[in-house]
Design a protein around this nucleic acid. Structure first.
Lengths: 203, 203
DNA sequence: CCGATTCAATCAAGTGTTTAATTGACCGCT
DNA sequence: AGCGGTCAATTAAACACTTGATTGAATCGG
């Protein structure tokens, strides 16, 4: 049990640090506050995480893990695409702190190779999963074979990532952007459909 | 001259602070370093900017001003759209620090109403300019009339904003995403064209 | 000489991290 | 059962250093 209890406490500390970052940003992350949030002494925190950096690495993994549920392998590729878009949107709306933490991590990755590695890895996996879905959608005839699945996947990742930024996520515009994306991908719910995109070769 | 010299010095300090944020983030912005970067004493900085916050506000305006050149009112709406997409991309590639600073400001806006106001205002103006361009493109028959210009504008803003994040901007994927956007908008350079997107009403 | 600028020195309030000590459960030994 | 010993877990107290901000004297152009 000591092993499990140890892991529990680590989780407690990580979650407290996560909340701190969501509330006050990296700028405002104080080890003392994290310890106080769990109700332990500051030295206890350093007993589990030798440095502040180690604690942050714990937060990175925790935050990334929150996205594991957004890709459910049910239904057709088109269904999976639509469900993924909506699951991410829902997750970010229900847990606004997640977007903030992700944004902070994203920025820090410019200066911290360790975090950059984790982020890069996560984004790569995401991109490839999307590309796989798109390819299968093409194979099933749901998307025209001329599209570059790599580029479309990149656009989807970019649009969803932009949702994590506070200025955009708090505005109804993000929903609009994703709705438009659904239309161009041909996965929007029929009754909500309005225009389907650009006709091929208009000039 | 005293008036102009005074403004010069303020600019020097703001630019130094801007560089600091780009290099070390908000987290690592130190007034001493800013002063040292210009070669003046810390008290001199406080003479021009009473508080650190005042200095940051200066940085916000400076950063936002960098985007004023990306919307040139020449050519057809389609030309302007294409040129805008490419100008933003070019600006962010040539000046990587700008993306970082923008990202930092974006995050800070979640906690700082003053910055949030400026950002919101800037994004709104941007969105509306894009929507205007799209509407004129529709009027000229370059885009089909069924598209929701508001939603497309939102998607463009989201995609370009995502470019400011380090993890994405450093990857060739961002270029891919924007290329795909150009195709769907029907403004991509002909010889670079590959697939044009989703045919209308594929089901 | 005078007001605008600049500076060295200093301050109070934190900052992450470490140290030395305490607690209590668990162990083999008598 | 009683006893010392070990060990993980926790703590109060400080350490060494940094931070934004202030001050009073010095400097310089007009």
């Amino acid at each position: 049990m000591s092993q499990a209890a140890r892991e529990d406490r680590r989780q407690e500390l990580v979650r407290a640090a996560y909340s701190q970052i969501a509330e006050r940003g990296f700028e405002g992350l104080r080890t003392r506050e994290v310890a106080a949030g769990v109700g332990v002494n500051i030295a206890t925190l350093h007993y589990y995480f030798p440095t502040k950096e180690a604690l942050i690495r714990g937060v990175v993994e925790h935050a990334m893990g929150r996205f594991r549920t957004t890709l459910a392998p049910h239904g057709s590729p088109a269904d999976q695409l639509r469900n993924h878009l909506r699951a991410v949107r829902k997750l970010l709306r229900e847990e606004p702190g997640l977007g903030l933490v992700l944004g902070e991590l994203n920025l820090r990755s410019a200066r911290d190779p360790a975090i950059a590695g984790i982020m890069r890895q996560t984004y790569d996996a995401w991109h490839q999963t999307l590309r796989g879905l798109l390819r299968r959608a093409v194979k099933e005839g749901h998307l025209p074979p001329e599209i570059d699945t790599d580029e479309v996947a990149a656009l989807v990742v970019a649009a969803l990532t932009a949702m994590t930024l506070p200025t955009l996520s708090s505005s109804p515009r993000t929903d609009q952007a994703l709705r438009q994306l659904e239309r161009w991908l041909g996965v929007s719910t029929p009754r909500a459909k309005k225009g389907n995109g650009v006709p091929p070769a208009s000039d």
